[in-house]
Computed example of a mutant assay.
Amino acid sequence: MDFSEYGTLSEEWVDFEKNNSEAAGWTLDIGGGDPVKLQAQGNIMTAAMGRAKLERSGLWAVVEFEDYTATSRDGYAIPVRCYRPKAARGRTLPAHVHYHGGGYTTGDLETDECYCVAWAHALSAAVVSVNYRHTPQVSGLVPFHDAIDAFDWIAGHAAALGADPERLTVGGISAGGGLAAAVVVHEVRQALAGGAAARVRGQVLAIPNVVQEFPFERFADRGRTSLVQCAGSPLLPKIFYDYMVGLLRAGHDTPANHPTWNPGLVEDEVLRSIPPTAMLVCGSDLLRDEGLMYASRLRDAGVPTKVHIFDGMPHGFYLFDQLASTTRWEEIVRESTRWAGSKEGEWFVEVPPQKP
């Protein structure tokens, strides 16, 4: 495999960077050595950007939410927030479970709220956001276990959420994409072991981190893999990626090849039973190749798979509304979420649209 053709930064990004050097060159400061301060910095900044986006949209006028708590295997109370269109009160809706990004360190219910509100409104769906635990407060498989346990709670409490248990999809961005993929692999394994159908109808993986042990042997040339080609790309340079991975692996002995945090390398027997998968990938992104490798494996195994590559765009470019590609990104995420949860010939009952 070789996906290096997508790695050169696009003219759109280069032009944006020239005119917005401070924003385009932004990344969290890892030089201070305090991951808790880094975490707070990231959450404050991302939540502020999201609030501004929501205020401009006016969507709070037509979407409401309720908070719940799921219990993890070690007794931790996992915060869960369910967003629904106000016009759909009393209706049972398809549901999408979302896991935010942030390198397993940053992110919470507020940082991705603007996306969840927009999806609930546009898709006539219940969107359930999960605030799994983060590094440095935890490490190892804890975020993955939280993601799995929260999904189990959501599926078991679908009626209370006004969600249709037969129409559950999962998705996530970056680290959250890896958690979503791990949830799906776990669900499929459980279903195969018990002779039942998996509870996930489809998944949407956006710029996901699906391997902790990169399979260089699967690629034509190590030097053209995204880990090498995109080591200095904006927003997620390799030095920052390595720092985040270091926090995730600190203080425990979980091997890098452990299957839970390597859903992209799942064994073929399980791979064939993965539900329909939509994959969104940025061309100039360290995580490009693991996403496209997983999508290729799914396609070759006969899994319905749709892939969107944002040629020459860096990881997380969609944070900037000034980019034309951000509008396209948002359109594709919405369309992919609907696609992942649909079956051929299925009828969709739309909630009458309300203008903000």
Rank of each mutant, 00 (worst) to 15 (best):
D164Q: 09
D164W: 04
D164P: 08
E166T: 13
E166R: 11
E166D: 15
R167A: 11
V170M: 09
I173E: 08
L179E: 01
A182L: 05
V183G: 05
V184A: 03
H186G: 03
H186A: 11
H186V: 01
E187W: 05
V188R: 09
V188D: 09
R189Q: 14
A191V: 07
A191P: 05
A193R: 15
A193C: 13
A193P: 13
A193E: 15
A197M: 12
A197V: 11
R199H: 15
V200A: 09
Q203P: 05
Q203I: 05
V204F: 01
A206N: 09
I207S: 05
P208S: 10
N209M: 09
N209K: 04
E213Q: 12
E213K: 12
P215F: 08
F216Q: 09
R218C: 06
R218F: 00
A220C: 00
A220N: 01
G223Q: 09
R224G: 00
R224Q: 02
R224E: 03
R224A: 00
S226M: 05
L227T: 06
L227W: 11
V228C: 01
C230L: 00
C230R: 01
G232D: 11
G232F: 03
L235V: 03
L236H: 03
P237G: 01
K238C: 00
K238L: 09
I239A: 10
I239V: 07
F240H: 12
Y241E: 11
R249F: 06
G251L: 04
G251F: 00
H252N: 15
D253P: 01
T254R: 00
A256L: 13
P259H: 13
T260K: 02
N262V: 06
L265Y: 03
L265V: 05
L265M: 14
V266S: 06
D268P: 10
D268T: 15
E269M: 11
L271C: 12
L271T: 13
L271M: 14
L271Y: 13
S273K: 12
I274S: 11
T277Y: 07
T277R: 04
T277S: 14
A278T: 07
A278F: 11
M279R: 09
M279Y: 09
C282A: 14
G283K: 07
G283L: 01
D285W: 01
D285H: 02
D285P: 03
L286E: 04
R288W: 07
E290I: 01
G291F: 06
L292K: 06
M293H: 08
Y294H: 12
R299C: 12
A301W: 15
A301M: 14
A301G: 12
A301D: 15
P304E: 14
P304Q: 15
T305L: 12
T305C: 11
